[in-house]
Simulated assay, not measured.
Amino acid sequence: EYYKAVDDKVFFHPFLQKNVVFAQHDLVTDQSFNEFDIIICRNVFIYFNKDLQNHVHTLLYNSLSPSGFLGLGKREGIKFTSYEHCYGEFDASEKLYRKVK
């Protein structure tokens, strides 16, 4: 209903494409540049030290709209971060969190 698969490619239907922006963003050096309803950042934090993890959590928190969603990788989470109290668990098995503060 939302896309069409042709051989090894996937094409989104035009009604979705007009609302999607793909952009390159450096989590280490760039600042927040928009307010997003959902951010999927899977399997990135496992490669960062604690200081860089906190820096990126700040960036993601500041980039999410109120009640926005954050998706993390299977071995990642928000426990033991300075932003743990800012999210509610939405789907534990999928590591989806919702911004509450």
Rank of each mutant, 00 (worst) to 15 (best):
E94H: 12
E94Y: 14
P14Q: 10
N54W: 03
N54H: 10
R98D: 00
F11M: 04
Y47R: 08
Y61H: 13
V10W: 00
N34E: 10
Q24E: 07
R42N: 12
R98H: 01
A5V: 09
D51M: 07
V21C: 06
S32T: 04
C86V: 04
S82F: 09
T58G: 12
R42V: 06
F11D: 03
S82M: 11
S65H: 04
S65V: 05
Y2H: 05
D26K: 00
L96H: 05
E94F: 10
R75Q: 12
D26W: 01
H13I: 08
R42M: 06
I46N: 14
L60H: 02
T29S: 01
P66W: 01
I39H: 09
N19M: 07
V20N: 05
H57L: 12
D30V: 03
Y87M: 13
Y83D: 05
F33E: 14
Y3R: 05
I38R: 10
V10G: 01
K95A: 14
K50F: 09
F45E: 10
Q17A: 14
S63C: 00
Y2Q: 02
N43G: 13
H55C: 13
K99V: 03
K95P: 13
C86R: 07
Y97R: 07
K79C: 10
H13S: 07
G73F: 06
N43Q: 15
D91P: 03
F48H: 07
Y97H: 06
Y3N: 05
Y87C: 12
V44T: 15
F33D: 11
I78S: 03
G68S: 02
P14K: 11
R75V: 11
P66D: 08
E1Y: 11
V21E: 13
L70F: 06
Y3A: 13
G77H: 04
K50L: 14
H25Y: 02
K9S: 08
L96T: 12
I78D: 01
N19R: 12
V44F: 14
L16G: 03
L16E: 01
T58P: 01
Q31L: 13
L64I: 03
T81I: 02
L72S: 04
E35W: 08
D7Y: 03
V28N: 00
T81H: 03
G73D: 11
D91T: 09
N54S: 14
E1G: 08
Y97D: 11
D30F: 04
I39N: 07
Q17G: 12
L64P: 02
G73V: 10
